[in-house]
Design a protein around this nucleic acid. Structure first.
Lengths: 229, 229
DNA sequence: AAAATTAAGTGTATTATCAACATTTAATAT
DNA sequence: ATATTAAATGTTGATAATACACTTAATTTT
């Protein structure tokens, strides 16, 4: 019984690779590191690591994210399992990719430096090791899909944000522009934003109101399904 | 170089489990087997098996499907990687679930009997081993999502089908009814169905025209995105 | 104090899509 | 010739999506 079964089956190295997205006000960025291990050491790579026997795969992903950024309780979602034979020239490694959304300035800069990590705009990606480019491409598509139906975009913004920041985020994610009037009306009509009595004044004389995402109101609406955009 | 890296990392058993969907004209069915291995041998289970070192994970899924049904070149899609610590009481096994869509009467009956496999309506699922119920639930949600935007429903129908069969399929997938007039108009307006000069006559005196999915027309439209329903 | 500047904030008209609803038609059976 | 059966089809109203430009609030300059 128990751990004695399945003795004669092949065993695999399981990597977990994290596509970590951030937003700096203009473009969507991915957090990339200089790969520490051979093969391909020193080249640009997603942050990754091997799963361990004593942790779930989700926990492994959270551990690897924490290790790089110092952050926990981060929005994270499994993306896909990459299982091609020759995807890693260092050996047969099956990789489970996760994507995470973080506030770009929340991470621990010392840790980032330790791993030689940099935020790099999705439109200016350098060559990446293995199949990591494919992973980022898929993650971007999934982010578009996710952000259409779920209020996860706020994970990429400061706690307080203006409508123009929110619109800039959506425009960056979808690589297209939206009409300001239509966008504002649509978003506000969802009833999940709360306006503060406080304005952002650096970018205009009039100032733009700050908003916060109202999680409680969202929870009430969640079951019906919500169309963000 | 090559296979000498990564020596000291944990290795995992990788299972592949297949959610195989079929449609019998009224309900969506899953192909379930009586589990052959301990633990939980003899209980209802998804068809599964262990991945091998010499095959990609996609290939492993195709092999397992072929093994049960005798079918290849089947619509198949990776669903999710299930990696919880205790999901399999027989040991630490990470499972990658795939879902497949097949024509219910196309599979090899001898093979099905070999594995004591049965088509079971999603609404009448028996208790299943491990986390297989969760897998089916997720697969059903993914099927709904997939079939909304992609013309994969046809994989579940005979080559020639009537509009009422197609509607019955969508009603089974979404567990709701559609207005016949609206449904017909919407589907035909996509321009991806070709009407044959042939009628299905068993269920009415007038007879209902057969249609086939026109893959060529679809390919032309694919890039724009298509809203099936 | 008045005028100019800047980006924020807002309304309307048009079009397209979705949803609700019942009658006519083709083929066979009586 | 009539009855039967399910298939095929059209219209209307409601809602959502799109396109488009002026007014307003606050500060800066004259």
């Amino acid at each position: 019984m128990g751990r004695i079964e399945y003795k004669n089956n092949d065993r695999f190295l399981l990597a977990v690779d994290c596509i970590i997205f951030g937003f700096d006000g203009s473009g969507i960025k991915a957090l990339l590191v200089k790969r520490a291990l051979e093969p391909e050491a020193g080249k640009w790579s997603l942050m990754g690591g091997f799963a361990q026997q004593n942790e779930s795969i989700d926990d492994a992903a959270a551990r690897i994210l924490l290790n790089l950024t110092g952050l926990d309780k981060i929005y994270m979602e499994q993306l896909y399992c990459f299982g091609d034979l020759d995807r890693d020239p260092g050996g047969r490694v099956v990789s489970i990719a996760y994507f995470a959304l973080i506030k770009i300035d929340a991470s621990d800069n010392d840790k980032l430096e330790e791993h030689q990590a940099k935020w790099i705009d999705l439109k200016k990606l350098p060559p990446l090791v293995f199949d990591h480019k494919k992973m980022i491409k898929l993650a971007k598509e999934r982010l578009q899909q996710k952000v259409s139906n779920h209020p996860v975009g706020f994970e990429l913004l400061p706690h307080k944000f203006t409508l123009q920041q929110l619109q800039a985020l959506y425009e960056a994610i979808f690589e297209r522009s939206f009409d300001k009037r239509n966008f504002t009306r649509k978003i506000l009509s969802l009833g999940i934003l709360q306006r503060l009595d406080e304005k952002e004044k650096t970018s205009s004389k009039k100032g733009a109101f700050f908003y916060v995402f109202d999680k409680k109101k969202y929870k009430q609406l969640e079951s019906e399904g919500i169309q963000m955009i």
